[in-house]
Design a protein around this nucleic acid. Structure first.
Lengths: 170, 170
DNA sequence: TCGAATATGTCAGTTATGTTGACATAAATT
DNA sequence: AATTTATGTCAACATAACTGACATATTCGA
């Protein structure tokens, strides 16, 4: 393993590393985001492995805890998945007592979602290591640094869709 | 839809939004990361839908372009997936002419991976919208802001494993 | 009041991407 | 010559997404 460079192997082949200089493509941050998010998600994954749930359950438990009384439609809009996808994990979470459904007080077609005490504990257990990781990443940065990162991440997010836009929940 | 608060539906139910205040849990950044990464990944997804490839292909094409001559073992280590997982997408990328394999010049057991011209173009096409999104998120921030975000994202990433650590490539 | 629209649920089949386990081959190392 | 390493491959399986179709209860609008 002494040499490090690439050896040209054939004709229709690119041997130079793609740095993005020619087009000013920001490969550095593309990769930082990839690795940061992968490791960020690995913390709860380890916990979920134990309980038999997956990432899909994590997301549902998280948002139901953040906004108790959420309707199914609102949850679908937040997660941007289909109702058939949600149905499976939601059913498991309800059956195992992490989430309960309550008919909407004004619109009784709605099934408003609430966490049980158990669901609240799971949400906290999953969030703890992620929050610790974030705190670690902010070490050495001041309040201004926090504001900068918040501005950056906010700028990465798509503007919210107009309330009347078509959806894929059929 | 006149009321906004939650109505208490039963006994074993939490009705207050989970803010994380009690434990200082940083739900704000947990969600910022979730939405930022989801939208970040949606750009290439739209392109991939057209070509019949998926995210797994994207990652392979990306890293092979970034480091032409990469060995299969190095790629597996980077992606942290099993060789059986990689095999499927890598075969498709080779068969459709985006990547070529060349026996290692010093160790002929190795299959060093190179992008073809086509593969290089795909990598660029996938990276362009992501880079644009990053540039947009940096608007209004100076060079120091860039350094702050870089420090934050780097701090989110697990330290590299020791070179002799056990793996799951069996 | 009645028909249409809405909120949700469910059945059935498919796809993408990951997993484990077992085994094969060629080349390098000891 | 025997073992280890780098890679490939077959088979079975799990998760989580998808599309399409249809069912039910409730609300809303003409």
């Amino acid at each position: 393993m002494s040499h490090t460079g690439a050896i040209k192997p054939a004709s229709d082949v690119s041997v130079a590393p793609l740095t993005g200089e020619a087009e000013n493509i920001d490969f550095e941050f593309i990769e930082l985001l990839f690795f940061a998010y992968r490791d960020f998600i690995s913390d709860p994954d380890a916990i979920l492995d134990t309980s038999g749930f997956g990432r899909a359950h994590h997301r549902v438990v998280h948002f139901v805890n953040r906004e108790p009384g959420l309707t199914v439609a609102a949850l679908l809009e937040t997660l941007k998945i289909t109702k058939q996808s949600l149905a499976r994990v939601l059913k498991q979470l309800i059956d195992s007592g992490y989430i309960t459904q309550v008919a909407g007080p004004e619109d009784r077609r709605q099934r408003r979602l609430y966490p049980t005490e158990r669901g609240r504990e799971l949400a906290l257990a999953l969030a703890r290591p992620q929050s610790r990781r974030i705190a670690h990443a902010f070490e050495g940065l001041d309040e201004g640094g926090r504001a900068v990162v918040k501005a950056f991440l906010s700028g990465m997010i798509n503007p919210a869709a107009r309330p009347g836009a078509p959806d894929k929940t059929g």
